[in-house]
Amino acid sequence: MGKLILSGELFKHIAASLQRALLGFSLGLAVSIPLGLLIGWFRGFERFIDPLLQTFRQTSAMALFPVFILLFGIGEISKLAIIFWSVQWPILLSTISGVKNVDPLLIKAARSMGASPLTLFHKVVLPASLPSIFTGIRLSATYSILILIAAEMMGAKSGLGYLIFDSEIRFEIGEMYAAIVTMSLVGLAINYTLVALEKRFTAWKA
Rank of each mutant, 00 (worst) to 15 (best):
T55S: 13
P51R: 06
P131F: 04
L6Q: 02
Q88S: 06
I74M: 13
P34M: 10
L52R: 01
R138P: 01
A63N: 05
A63I: 05
A15Y: 10
T95Y: 06
P90Q: 13
F42K: 14
I145G: 07
Y143P: 02
P131T: 05
I74T: 14
F65N: 08
T119Q: 15
P131Y: 08
I74A: 12
S144A: 15
L106M: 10
L130A: 08
K12R: 04
G24L: 09
R138Q: 08
F65Q: 09
S112T: 11
Q54Y: 11
P131S: 09
T55I: 14
R111I: 03
L10Q: 05
F68T: 11
L37I: 12
W89C: 01
T59M: 14
V99R: 13
S86H: 04
V102I: 10
G8D: 10
I82G: 12
L18A: 14
L35F: 12
A15C: 00
S78T: 01
I39T: 11
L27R: 01
K123Y: 04
G24D: 09
V125D: 09
A141C: 05
A15H: 09
G136W: 08
S17M: 03
R111W: 02
M62N: 05
G44F: 07
G40Y: 06
L10G: 04
L27H: 01
V102G: 05
I82H: 15
E46M: 02
L10H: 07
G8C: 09
S26W: 03
S94V: 03
H13R: 00
S129C: 12
S132W: 02
I96M: 12
A141V: 02
F134M: 10
I96A: 08
L27S: 05
I49N: 13
A128E: 15
I77M: 15
L139Q: 13
L10A: 06
M113C: 15
S144T: 04
I33P: 04
T55E: 02
L27I: 08
K79R: 15
L106I: 04
I96S: 14
F134I: 01
L22C: 12
T55C: 12
L106G: 02
F11Q: 13
L92T: 03
V67C: 05
F134V: 00
F65V: 06
F48N: 11
L29I: 11
M62V: 14
L139P: 07
I91H: 07
S129D: 15
G114H: 09
A128L: 07
I39W: 10
L80K: 11
V99K: 14
I39G: 10
F11G: 09
T119W: 05
S132R: 11
S140H: 03
S97Y: 00
S32W: 05
L10S: 00
I133E: 09
D103V: 01
S94Q: 08
L37N: 07
I69A: 10
R111F: 00
E76Y: 14
P117S: 04
D50V: 00
A16W: 07
R20V: 02
L118A: 13
F72M: 10
L106Q: 13
E76K: 14
F45Y: 08
G40A: 06
S129F: 04
I39C: 11
I107L: 15
G44M: 03
F56K: 12
Q54L: 06
F121N: 10
D103T: 02
L118Y: 12
I39D: 09
P131C: 05
S7Y: 00
P90L: 05
L71A: 14
G24Q: 12
